[in-house]
């Protein structure tokens, strides 16, 4: 069932990403191993994993869209709804909590005017309280998209947000 190698002419992804996917499925002993990276890269390009992406990825791997959804819904980084251009992920797990992570999250809520898993009306920022991101010795830490910002204070956080806003407005 999984041995079919269907490659349709059209793709919903950029030529670069499509080429990357073509290669990715050949790196592993089974095509399906490429599933999770593909979903993540598709999300990076399109903001979230769209229905069309699910269909195309299922087809590229040779599994059913249900299989893809089963896997996709398991992983917390993958999402099926859009978020802001800059997704602010504030860690509040123990090491960060002890150094004010919770407070930092509250601060971000106020500053951005949105709550957990919400997006600002202009679509620039979205906010999420996340579990440990592996920056415990440099707590409190925040990830904006994939960029780490650590040893944060409220002021430092504001500066970080301002910087992204400027970038967005460019």
């Amino acid at each position: 069932m999984t041995t079919e190698a269907p490659m349709e002419a059209q793709t919903i992804f950029s030529p670069e990403l499509a080429a990357r996917f073509d290669k990715l499925v050949t790196l592993y002993p089974v095509r399906r191993s490429a599933l999770i990276p593909m979903l993540l890269y598709a999300q990076d390009e399109q903001g979230y994993v769209t229905d069309a992406a699910i269909r195309e990825i299922a087809q590229r791997i040779g599994i059913t869209p249900l299989d893809v959804r089963n896997v996709l819904s398991y992983y917390s980084l993958l999402r099926t709804k859009p978020v802001g251009k800059y997704h602010v992920q504030v860690c509040t797990n123990i090491s960060c909590m002890l150094r004010g992570g919770q407070k930092l999250f509250e601060h971000c809520k106020q500053r951005l005017g949105v709550g957990h898993k919400e997006t600002t009306p202009d679509g620039i920022f979205s906010l999420e309280e996340v579990e440990c991101i592996g920056a415990c010795s440099w707590a409190p830490a925040v990830q904006v998209n994939y960029d780490f910002h650590d040893n944060l204070t409220a002021d430092a956080m504001d500066a970080v947000l301002d910087q992204y806003r400027k970038q967005a407005e460019k």
Binding site: I94, A135, C136
Partner: peptide, 10 residues
């Protein structure tokens, strides 16, 4: 590496 409190592999 995901155990809260751990950031060595990082």
């Amino acid at each position: 590496e995901s155990e809260p409190g751990t950031c060595k592999d990082h």
